[in-house]
C-alpha cells in the first residue's frame, strides 16, 4: 500500500521499504536517531527527497492536505490550537464510540485542553487522527504516556484498524509491545534505517 523508495533528507540516510495493507512495522532506535525525521518525512511535513507512493500513486501528484488525511502522523507530543477538547474534532459525536474505547467520556468535549493530563491528550490526539479514517498510521510512541490498562485499550483499537486493512509504522521502546503488535521491525540508528529480524 505505502511504497517508500530512496527517501532521504539531512539527518536521514536514504531508506526504502514497502508497507502493505494490514501490516504493522515496529520502529525502534535511540533518541535523536532519526525516528521522528522518518515519520515526518513520510507525512511530507519537512522538505525531503525520494519517492513515496500510496496505492501506486506518487504523493507529488496528491495535494499535501489530502495526503496527510490518508497518511496520518500522530507525534509523541500533540499540538492543540483551540481552548476546549471538542473544538479539535470535526464531528465530536461521530468520534464518541472511538473515544469510549479509549476511556474518554462523552462530556470531555467541554474540557479545557490545559486541564487534560498527558495520557488523556495522547488518547485524544490519536482519536482525532483516527477519526479521518487514514489508510496509513505513523505512530510515534502512541502509548508512551499511558498506564497498562489504557495501553491495552489503545492497542486493541489500533490492531482492529490494522486488521481492517490499515497499515501502521509504530515507534515503540517497549520490545514486548513491538512483538505484540508488529510482524516486521525497523531499527533506526544514526540516521540509518535497517530492517531487523527482531527488536
Amino acid at each position: 500500500m505505502l511504497d517508500i523508495a530512496g527517501l532521504h533528507r539531512p539527518g536521514l540516510m536514504p531508506v526504502s521499504f514497502a508497507l502493505p495493507s494490514g501490516a504493522c512495522i515496529a520502529v525502534r532506535g535511540p533518541s535523536g536517531a532519526g525516528k521522528t525525521l522518518l515519520l515526518r518525512a513520510i507525512a511530507d511535513l519537512d522538505p525531503c527527497e525520494g519517492n513515496v507512493s500510496l496505492d501506486g500513486v506518487n504523493r507529488v501528484s496528491i495535494p499535501a492536505p489530502s495526503w496527510r488525511r490518508q497518511v496520518s502522523y500522530v507525534p509523541a507530543v500533540s499540538g492543540w490550537w483551540a481552548d476546549t477538547v471538542g473544538d479539535h474534532f470535526q464531528n465530536w459525536s461521530a468520534a464518541a464510540p472511538l473515544l469510549a474505547h479509549f476511556k474518554i467520556p462523552e462530556d470531555a468535549a467541554a474540557w479545557p485542553v490545559a486541564r487534560c493530563s498527558t495520557g488523556e491528550l495522547a488518547r485524544l490526539a490519536l482519536a482525532r487522527a483516527l477519526a479521518t479514517q487514514p489508510k496509513v498510521l505513523l505512530l510515534d510512541e502512541p502509548t508512551g504516556a499511558l498506564d497498562d490498562e489504557t495501553t491495552a485499550a489503545v492497542e486493541a483499537v489500533l490492531l482492529d484498524r490494522i486488521a481492517q486493512g490499515a497499515a501502521a509504522l509504530w515507534v515503540t521502546h517497549d520490545t514486548a509491545q513491538a512483538a505484540r503488535v508488529a510482524s516486521r521491525f525497523l531499527l533506526v540508528e544514526g540516521g540509518a534505517v535497517h530492517e531487523a529480524a527482531q527488536l
Binding site: 507525512a43 511535513l45 499535501a64 492536505p65 489530502s66 496527510r68 488525511r69 496520518s72 502522523y73 500522530v74 507525534p75 507530543v77 500533540s78 499540538g79 492543540w80 490550537w81 490526539a125 482525532r128 487522527a129 479521518t132
Partner: peptide
C-alpha cells in the same frame, strides 16, 4: 510559539491557510 498547534492542524489535513489563520 504556536508551531505545535499549526503543525497539528497540518497533520490532520488542514491547508496552510487554515493552519496559519490564528
Amino acid at each position: 510559539q504556536r508551531r505545535g498547534a499549526v503543525e497539528a492542524q497540518l497533520m490532520l489535513g488542514a491547508t496552510r491557510r487554515e493552519a496559519m489563520g490564528p
